[in-house]
């Protein structure tokens, strides 16, 4: 069974060769004339103001945390979905309990305003 993963490893190597070959060949044939203005960060033609390593909105973190929670829940549902026909009623009720807890949390998050962007 594990042997069917061998082609995937080969695929990674072939896919890796694409950017590597492209960048190496490109390096040989393309011009290289660096200039201070050319190497400046783009800010609509104005000299960049400060550094981009700055703080950004807290909402992105909240979305990231929510993503981890929900994505892990979905991963748990994958095996359940596959053997659902064998689990039948037991599986259905178990899933309702499982999703029920998730939905309570979902409404909590909603009421707390974590899903509001503005």
């Amino acid at each position: 069974m594990l042997a069917s993963y061998v082609p995937i490893v080969i695929f990674i190597l072939v896919a890796l060769s694409l950017p590597v070959v492209g960048l190496v060949v490109g390096r040989l044939i393309r011009p290289y004339k660096p200039h201070a203005t050319k190497l400046m960060a783009y800010e609509c033609g104005v000299d960049p103001e400060g550094d981009a390593r700055d703080r950004f909105s807290i909402r992105f973190y909240i979305i990231a945390i929510l993503f981890v929670v929900f994505e892990v829940e979905t991963i748990f549902l994958f095996p359940w979905a596959i053997i659902y026909r064998r689990l039948a009623l037991f599986g259905f009720i178990e899933m309702l309990v499982f999703l029920g807890i998730l939905i309570v949390g979902y409404f909590y998050v909603w009421k707390k305003g974590a899903l509001e962007w503005v």
Binding site: G22, L23, V25, G26, R27, I29, R30, P31, Y32, K33, P34, K38, L39, M40, A41
Partner: peptide, 8 residues
């Protein structure tokens, strides 16, 4: 492929 590749 031929364009200059700029690293800021």
């Amino acid at each position: 492929l031929l364009k200059e590749d700029i690293v800021p």
